[in-house]
Amino acid sequence: MTHNAKIPVGISACLLGMEVRHDKGHKRSRYCTDVLSRYFTFRSLCPEMGAGMSAPRKAMHLTEEGGVVRMETTDGKRDVTPLMNDFIQRSVPELSSLRGFILTAKSPSCGMERIRHYTPEGNVLHRDGEGLFAAALKREYPLMPLEEAGRLNDDALRENFIERVFLYDDWCQMVEAGLTPKGLIEFHSRHKFQLLAHCQKTYRRLGPLLADLKSGSLEAIAEEYIDGVMLAMKKQVSRGAHVNTLQHLTGFLREDLSQEDRTHINDQIQAYLREEVPLVVPMTLLRGALRKVHLPYVNAQRYLTPYPDALGLRNRV
């Protein structure tokens, strides 16, 4: 599989180095600008600037009273909630072409989680809120992968987000081309082992769902299917789940590969399980073996190449 076209992904403007924060600073993410920009076409957005605020500006936070959340300056002198809500209503519906969004942590607009809500008096009410813009994105696009830039420093979270973006892009392209039973079955076929690795329970449930596409409307079945897939893909793959999936794929080579080659692959799978080698080692051996045989179904599995190899996401032990 090749990954040629860049994928459209949204990003908080400050992460690209734009001086749009309240202190006229930025929070440039070099991983985004120097690495992910090779594969993603970024659409930058700053909710505060888009809402008509200036840089610099007074710092803001979220207040809550009676279950109503408002965005105000930290000195309590200005309520910018109407401005922010107007921006959200104008901008969010225009983001349907995006395949993911990278947000700024701790922001009252873009923070994805752990955002403090204050009482009108300035005391911390709770610490598990969401930024207003980030919350609107989740409501409007529940399938779209979202992540905070800081969390991309974690190897597992970084791989999980990028894998979900590439899978979601494949789904959107399939739907945009026109949803058909054939297209839905082919999508499931090429992502089947990714699903197995992320969640066996969902894998076992969604297969039968597609077995009889005449049992209901195709659109309803597809919606239930992709809801299940994207929820399962949020789960990080355990080392044991990778081993199980690799062994399943190696089983397809039983008739076409020598005992010596199969043993070598299985030895490296076990070495990965013991944390002696990174996942890329048994994965590369398996992909090399598959090039020697004619197994189109197995070669089409996106589990083997869910994103460009140059990202190096499977290179760590």
Rank of each mutant, 00 (worst) to 15 (best):
E48A: 06
M71N: 06
K58R: 14
S54L: 10
T63I: 15
H61I: 02
C46S: 06
V80T: 03
H61A: 11
E48L: 05
K58H: 14
V69G: 06
E72D: 07
D79S: 00
D79H: 00
L45C: 08
G50F: 01
R78L: 13
G52D: 07
A55D: 01
G52H: 04
L62W: 01
V80C: 08
G76K: 10
L62C: 12
L45V: 08
E48G: 02
D79Y: 00
P56N: 12
G50H: 02
S54N: 13
H61R: 15
V68F: 12
T73Q: 11
G50E: 10
S54R: 13
C46E: 05
P56D: 07
S44R: 03
M71T: 08
E65H: 12
V68A: 11
K77V: 11
G66V: 06
S44H: 02
M49Y: 00
C46V: 02
E65T: 09
A51R: 01
D75H: 10
G67W: 09
C46A: 03
R78T: 14
S44V: 05
G52C: 03
G67P: 09
E65V: 08
R70W: 06
P47I: 06
H61V: 01
S54A: 12
T63E: 14
G67M: 09
S44M: 05
G66Q: 12
V68D: 10
S54T: 15
G76N: 10
C46L: 04
A51H: 01
P47N: 05
S54M: 11
T73E: 09
M49H: 00
D75G: 09
H61S: 11
E48P: 02
K77S: 15
G76F: 04
P56W: 09
A55W: 02
G66E: 10
D75M: 08
G67C: 09
G50Q: 05
T63Q: 14
A59T: 13
G52Q: 07
K77E: 15
L62M: 10
E64I: 08
R70P: 12
V69E: 06
E64K: 12
E65W: 07
T63V: 12
M53I: 12
A55I: 01
P56F: 14
E72S: 07
G66M: 08
T63M: 12
A51E: 01
H61T: 06
M60C: 14
D79V: 03
M60P: 00
M49L: 06
T73P: 06
A51L: 00
D79C: 03
E65F: 11
G76Q: 11
H61M: 05
A55S: 15
V68K: 11
H61N: 13
T74C: 14
P47T: 01
S54H: 10
T74F: 03
G50V: 03
V80F: 13
T63L: 02
H61C: 10
